[in-house]
């Protein structure tokens, strides 16, 4: 278990909902649109305080993980109100306790700005995803456009101790982890985006 990361998010759990009130409402339509793709057995990574749960389509079979027990404690009320099967588990994305090829889909929401080793985390997700399975991500990343790239670089070391990194190249990280990118859509500038990718089908052939 990555203890420093768990401690950071346990600390942030106290004020997370306060800071996330505006962002979650602003992003709600785009998140609902992305999460509408959920089907089959779904792994949702970094559920936090469960702010995304109201955007899940009803009737799904979802396992949601988070590294922070304090975040998960806050998520339980929202999880209980979900109209479907939703299991919350405390888990580090770098050390997933699921067998290979357990899930049809993996969904993330503002997750890979914070995972300490994003490529290793994405490789771990690829392992538990069925070959050809879907990866859907709603993420904020760095920018290639001046002066936004400068501001994100300046703010990253200030925010990192209590929150996310703001200048990550998540699309490249997804490719490095061996996923096949299907679609990337900018939601705000080139900073907030949705990513749709697939686990390679070749793995299906090699594992029979």
């Amino acid at each position: 278990m990555d203890t420093p990361t768990r401690k950071k998010w346990d600390f942030s759990a106290a004020f997370y909902d306060l800071l996330a009130w505006g962002p979650e409402r602003r992003w709600a339509p785009r998140k609902r649109e992305l999460f509408a793709n959920m089907h089959g057995k779904v792994l949702f990574v970094a559920v936090g305080t469960g702010q995304d749960i109201p955007f899940f389509p009803p009737g799904q079979d979802i396992t949601a993980i988070d590294i922070s027990p304090r975040m998960l404690a806050k998520a339980r009320g929202r999880a209980a109100r979900y109209d479907g099967s939703l299991e919350l588990r405390e888990m580090d994305v770098h050390a997933l306790e699921f067998p290979d090829h357990s899930f049809d889909q993996v969904v993330t929401s503002c997750t890979f700005c914070s995972v300490p080793d994003p490529v290793a985390g994405l490789i771990a997700l690829r392992r538990v995803l069925k070959p050809g399975g879907d990866l859907y991500m709603f993420e904020h990343t760095g920018s290639r456009v001046f002066p936004f790239n400068l501001m994100l670089d300046v703010m990253t070391p200030i925010w990192k101790p209590i929150g996310p990194e703001m200048n990550r190249d998540t699309v490249s990280n997804v490719k490095k982890a061996g996923f096949e990118i299907r679609q990337v859509n900018n939601v705000y500038l080139d900073v907030v985006k949705t990513i749709a990718a697939s686990a390679p089908v070749q793995e299906k052939k090699s594992t029979g």
């Binding site: 009130w21 505006g22 904020h140 501001m151 907030v192």
Partner: peptide
């Protein structure tokens, strides 16, 4: 910034406000 972010949005507020 945290006050405005909490009320109106994350990157959509943070980037223009800091600039």
């Amino acid at each position: 910034m945290p006050v405005f972010v909490g009320l109106f949005g994350a990157m959509e507020v943070m980037l223009p406000v800091m600039l």
